[in-house]
């Protein structure tokens, strides 16, 4: 089961890293680089980070414990909080126009992936508890 959670998070992390520039690209950069471009870079990095930790959890049981699930869910949530400027991070942001690609396609896809990762992490944390992995001892 833990491997399944790891595999789902690994794939979700991969999709997350590919979303802003390959699968659901953010707005094209003109002479002016917009906030959504930097948000795209942030999401890509966070996606790679999630995929990496999830990959470790597939091979090393220590990475299946609660602390790694908390880190993964925090990284996933930051992909929503940073572009929406709830956490201000440099020039990261989104275009104000809802019809622009970053608002119309990138963020909806990213939100679905974030929700999936977050749900899997919560399920993983409960599973660790009922299976006897009390994270305080991890």
């Amino acid at each position: 089961m833990k491997k399944l959670f790891g595999a789902v998070n690994f794939l979700s992390g991969l999709f997350l890293s590919l979303a802003p520039f390959v699968l659901f690209p953010v707005c094209d950069t003109t002479e002016k680089i917009m906030g959504c471009y930097y948000s795209g870079i942030f999401i890509t990095c966070a996606g790679i980070f999630i995929a990496l930790i999830s990959l470790l959890s597939l091979f090393f049981s220590v990475w299946t414990k609660n602390f790694s699930l908390v880190i993964i869910s925090a990284a996933a949530l930051s992909c929503w909080l940073v572009p929406n400027k709830i956490i201000e991070l440099g020039p990261c942001g989104l275009c104000a126009n809802p019809a622009h690609p970053c608002q119309a396609s990138t963020m909806p896809a990213v939100e679905i992936i974030i929700a999936l990762i977050f749900t899997v992490c919560i399920a993983g944390i409960i599973f660790n508890f009922v299976k006897g992995d009390f994270s305080s001892r991890a």
Binding site: I122, I126, F127, F129, V130, K131
Partner: peptide, 17 residues
């Protein structure tokens, strides 16, 4: 006891959650 029946414990935790 919680660990012996993970399915039941999982459901209970989800309900309280």
């Amino acid at each position: 006891n919680i660990q012996r029946n993970p399915g039941r414990s999982f459901c209970l935790i989800v309900v309280v959650m």
